[in-house]
Amino acid sequence: MAAGGDHGSPDSYRSPLASRYASPEMCFVFSDRYKFRTWRQLWLWLAEAEQTLGLPITDEQIQEMKSNLENIDFKMAAEEEKRLRHDVMAHVHTFGHCCPKAAGIIHLGATSCYVGDNTDLIILRNALDLLLPKLARVISRLADFAKERASLPTLGFTHFQPAQLTTVGKRCCLWIQDLCMDLQNLKRVRDDLRFRGVKGTTGTQASFLQLFEGDDHKVEQLDKMVTEKAGFKRAFIITGQTYTRKVDIEVLSVLASLGASVHKICTDIRLLANLKEMEEPFEKQQIGSSAMPYKRNPMRSERCCSLARHLMTLVMDPLQTASVQWFERTLDDSANRRICLAEAFLTADTILNTLQNISEGLVVYPKVIERRIRQELPFMATENIIMAMVKAGGSRQDCHEKIRVLSQQAASVVKQEGGDNDLIERIQVDAYFSPIHSQLDHLLDPSSFTGRASQQVQRFLEEEVYPLLKPYESVMKVKAELCL
């Protein structure tokens, strides 16, 4: 049975990233139509530049190519590739079939990587351009969430054990800070992308030097003109047959890092959902379990974690691919890159769409948070109580021993009897502590235990987050809708 299948058929496997999760716009960027249309555009740009620099290419040939950029006979191309065992030459023939007058000058002087690699770089750039505003929107939604809850005390956790208090907004800023680093890295790697350009079979530009009869300047002009037509500021000066596969490492490393950030955020949300302090959106008709109707599973956060793990592992592909590119190139890269580049971007696209949807509907339960604080705060307040007693004339050592005994009794009630923490009640009825009984409410005010959390939130948002989001103001209103 021949390899390949009808990918629109229910009898043929289709990647869930495309069929179930990723956005239509990201799927289109990695589609065959987008790819092969870009090949034709690159052939047109090459012909236009070659004509401008004096090669015998007519206006009629150029116009014929322009008129057929979208006229792609995919069936013919597939048949040609089956016959020739070469995808680029299959599309040269297919393009030439609908451009008979231009057929002889299509791909003039070029090698397969002229269309293959340059198209990949265009796709990487455009895919990054799709991700950047999506990530900015996630940051914006979380920034709104953090600002609104900047002063809401909550129990902090280290080692997932109760620690000092923080605020809900401050905790959210930990998430935002990681995503801001990801946004900066995505922008950097996007701006650092260079075009492969017009380089020939081993990167020496020998074929173009021959076409222009040894004119170095025209060869350099050709490279520059096509690079500018493709919208790049610069091209690699040095290439082998391909652009260095280190570029793929750079791009997928940034995406993998984004995956790590999203995994951490969504894990926190899942843990908070278990504590009943916070939940992701839950639709009115949504079913959490087929057997347990009360369940409210954090399905979206779980999906993000599941896909983020996949995204983090994909960076190993370009690392290994770059390491086995012998001399000017081997074909070890080809099949692998067809999979890992598309999957990385479709996965990143999915987790950003999902995280935006989550961040637009996060639900906080202040009463649950308050109750958990009441359970733990008495123990945390013991040092403040000791200091207040010393100020009232008591002995630190005597007070410490009193607190120690009462704390152990209260802990026994919590752990052995399943009761509430009654340390404060014990202190309130103990005559030894009568000098500070009137101060206990103040000493137990949760806001006095959150330090500068709310001020940190305000400063972080104003100095770091809002300036970073400013270039994306025009796209901030787009909502994230999930079908599944």
Rank of each mutant, 00 (worst) to 15 (best):
M1I: 06
A2Y: 15
H7W: 08
H7T: 10
S15T: 15
S15C: 09
L17T: 07
A18Y: 15
Y21I: 00
S23H: 08
S23T: 08
E25D: 06
M26K: 00
M26F: 10
F30V: 12
D32C: 07
D32I: 07
D32M: 11
F36H: 15
R37E: 07
R37T: 07
R37P: 00
T38W: 04
L42M: 15
L44Y: 09
W45V: 06
W45T: 09
L46N: 13
T52N: 07
T52E: 06
L53T: 03
G54E: 11
L55V: 06
P56S: 05
P56G: 05
P56A: 05
I62N: 06
I62A: 05
I62W: 04
I62Y: 05
Q63H: 05
Q63S: 03
M65I: 02
M65L: 03
K66M: 09
K66H: 12
K66W: 09
K66A: 07
S67W: 12
N68L: 02
L69I: 13
L69W: 05
E70K: 04
N71D: 09
N71I: 08
K75I: 08
M76T: 15
M76Y: 07
A77F: 15
A78P: 12
A78C: 13
E80A: 14
R85S: 02
M89A: 13
H91I: 03
F95W: 12
P100H: 15
K101M: 13
K101D: 15
I105W: 10
I106C: 07
I106E: 03
H107M: 10
G109C: 00
G109S: 05
T111I: 00
G116A: 11
T119W: 11
T119S: 07
A127E: 09
L130F: 02
K134L: 06
K134D: 14
A136T: 14
V138L: 15
I139G: 04
S140L: 12
S140D: 06
S140G: 12
A146W: 01
K147C: 08
R149E: 10
T154W: 13
T154F: 01
G156Q: 00
F157C: 09
F157I: 03
T158C: 04
P162A: 06
A163T: 01
Q164D: 01
Q164M: 11
T167W: 03
T167R: 03
T167A: 02
G169C: 02
G169E: 06
K170Y: 04
R171Y: 00
C173F: 04
C173D: 02
L174M: 14
W175Y: 12
Q177G: 12
C180S: 11
M181A: 14
D182R: 04
L183M: 08
L183Q: 11
Q184G: 11
Q184C: 14
K187L: 13
K187V: 12
R188F: 15
V189E: 10
D191S: 11
R194Y: 10
R194A: 13
F195E: 05
V198S: 08
V198W: 05
T201N: 10
T202K: 00
Q205N: 09
S207L: 02
F208V: 10
L209Y: 06
F212R: 03
F212I: 15
E213D: 05
D215L: 08
V219F: 04
E220D: 15
E220C: 08
L222Q: 01
D223T: 10
M225E: 08
V226W: 00
V226F: 01
E228Y: 15
E228G: 06
K229Q: 07
K229C: 12
G231C: 07
F232G: 03
F232L: 11
F232R: 01
F232T: 01
A235Q: 14
I237P: 10
I238D: 01
I238W: 02
T239R: 00
G240R: 04
Q241C: 04
Y243C: 07
K246R: 07
D248W: 02
E250L: 11
S253A: 10
V254L: 13
S257I: 03
S257F: 06
L258A: 13
G259A: 15
G259S: 09
V262A: 15
H263F: 00
H263K: 06
H263M: 05
K264L: 03
K264A: 09
K264P: 02
I265S: 10
C266L: 07
T267P: 01
R270K: 00
N274T: 14
L275M: 04
K276E: 05
E277R: 05
E277W: 03
M278G: 04
P281E: 09
P281M: 15
P281Q: 10
F282G: 14
F282Q: 00
E283I: 15
E283R: 13
E283Q: 15
K284E: 05
Q286P: 00
I287N: 04
A291Q: 02
M292R: 00
R296G: 05
P298Q: 07
M299E: 04
R303K: 10
C304F: 02
R309L: 05
H310R: 08
V315I: 08
M316W: 11
D317C: 08
L319P: 00
T321H: 01
T321V: 08
A322W: 08
A322D: 04
S323M: 14
S323K: 01
V324A: 11
Q325M: 08
W326P: 00
E328P: 00
T330H: 01
L331M: 01
D332S: 00
S334Q: 15
S334G: 12
A335W: 04
E343H: 11
F345Y: 08
L346Y: 12
A348S: 08
L352M: 08
T354K: 09
G361D: 08
Y365N: 15
R371M: 01
R374S: 06
R374L: 07
Q375D: 03
Q375C: 09
E376A: 13
P378S: 08
F379L: 06
T382G: 07
E383Y: 02
E383S: 04
M387I: 10
A388D: 04
M389H: 12
M389Q: 09
G393M: 00
G393K: 08
S395F: 08
S395H: 10
S395C: 07
Q397N: 15
D398H: 10
C399W: 06
H400M: 05
I403L: 09
R404H: 06
V405T: 15
Q409F: 02
A410K: 14
A411S: 09
S412G: 14
S412D: 03
V414S: 09
V414G: 03
K415L: 09
K415Y: 05
Q416C: 13
E417N: 10
G419V: 07
G419A: 06
G419F: 03
L423M: 13
I424F: 05
R426Y: 14
R426N: 05
I427E: 02
Q428K: 13
Q428Y: 04
D430H: 15
Y432G: 10
Y432H: 14
S434E: 13
P435E: 11
I436W: 04
S438F: 11
S438Q: 14
Q439G: 11
D441A: 06
H442G: 10
L444D: 05
L444Y: 05
D445Y: 12
P446S: 05
S448N: 11
F449P: 02
T450Y: 10
T450F: 13
R452C: 13
R452T: 12
A453M: 01
Q456K: 06
V457K: 02
Q458H: 13
R459Y: 11
R459F: 07
L461K: 07
V465W: 04
L468D: 07
L469I: 14
K470C: 14
P471V: 13
P471N: 12
M476V: 13
K477Q: 10
E481T: 15
E481V: 13
E481N: 14
L484D: 09
